[in-house]
Computed example of a mutant assay.
Amino acid sequence: MSSVAKSARQSAAVLLSLSALLAASAIGATSASAAPANADDAQAPAGWERVDTELMNELLVEDGAAPLSASSATVEELPWAIESMNTGLFVAAELNYAQPNTGLLRARSDWFNGGWEQYAINFDEVSETITITNKANGLNVATERNFTGASNGLLRARSEGVGSWERYVLYYHEVNDTFAFQSVVNGLFVATERNYTGQLQNALRARSDWINGSWEQFYLW
């Protein structure tokens, strides 16, 4: 696909996916676990804005969708995909990996071909955080805070419940039309580990203090 066609499709798809998924999820929003101070109080880097309820509603209204507070009984849930800006690859949940890496999120697919690369998103209006659910296994993405070494902070689709490990703060950059994810449990931003090798190559890991560049930026489809 040409870069022009790709850009056009992406621009059309981003808010469409967000409109359906986030508006549909507002009715079922649940109370969140308390976020640590470093997640709540962090200043957004230049050009970045935390997606709070007000901004989310602005994005929805700009796309012609109902705001979160409106009834969304007729909204159709659409699959949602994440593309790493750094690699140009889509994020898949590695469901065939053995433990402890089962469900590892990794930017490795040329396209979102099925449930492994598709996610549902829920926006919680109380905490103004999101949860991410893999469509293939129905499990929520968690930040593996207790993993050690180079695996500390890896993202895995492995949880049935929702707590601080499964919650993320969403940031948006209007000029770049990109998004960033900050893990609530450790206050760090998710990066694509492009320099990792083997099974962990391009793994998603909450490990950056800041949105430093393309490693921490993602397109939403």
Rank of each mutant, 00 (worst) to 15 (best):
S164I: 14
T148A: 12
G198I: 11
L55A: 09
A120F: 13
A44P: 02
S183R: 13
T131Y: 05
A180F: 00
A98C: 02
V162S: 07
V141Q: 10
F179W: 15
G88Y: 01
A180M: 00
A206N: 09
E49F: 01
F218C: 01
A42N: 03
S183Y: 05
H173E: 03
S2H: 09
L204N: 00
R194D: 02
L95Q: 07
T87W: 03
E166Y: 11
L170W: 02
N101I: 09
Q217W: 00
E144H: 11
G47I: 09
A157R: 06
S2C: 12
A46K: 10
M85R: 14
A191E: 11
T192Y: 01
G115L: 11
R205E: 03
E62P: 00
R108Y: 04
E94V: 08
L59C: 08
S159E: 08
E128L: 03
Q199D: 10
A34V: 14
D63Y: 07
E216C: 00
F90N: 07
T102K: 12
A98P: 08
N101T: 09
A81E: 06
S208R: 14
A26E: 06
E125V: 15
L21A: 14
T53F: 01
M1K: 12
T148R: 12
L105G: 06
Q217H: 01
E62N: 13
N113R: 13
D110M: 09
E125C: 05
I130Y: 07
E62W: 06
A35D: 05
E83I: 02
G28E: 08
A13Q: 12
P36D: 09
T129S: 15
S19A: 10
A203Q: 13
M56D: 01
R106K: 15
L18T: 04
A37C: 07
E174V: 14
A107Q: 05
E49R: 15
S127Q: 10
A13C: 09
T53P: 01
R194W: 00
I121Q: 03
N176T: 04
Q10V: 08
T197S: 14
G114M: 07
L21F: 00
D124C: 09
I121L: 15
L55I: 13
W111I: 11
S208A: 15
E216L: 01
L59T: 04
T102Q: 12
T197N: 07
V162E: 10
Y119R: 08
L18R: 08
A203P: 07
L60K: 11
D63G: 12
L68F: 01
N212Y: 01
G198Y: 08
T131D: 12
W80M: 15
A37W: 06
L78Q: 10
S31H: 12
P79H: 07
I132E: 04
Q201V: 15
P79Y: 11
R145W: 04
N137G: 03
L55D: 04
G28M: 06
T178G: 00
G47V: 09
L170T: 11
L104M: 14
S7C: 12
Q217I: 04
L78T: 15
T192P: 00
S3L: 12
L18F: 01
I211D: 00
L68T: 14
A26S: 15
S151A: 13
D209N: 14
L188H: 05
L154P: 05
Y196W: 14
R194P: 00
A70E: 06
T129I: 06
R50P: 00
V169F: 04
A70M: 05
A37G: 04
V184T: 13
G153Y: 11
Q182A: 02
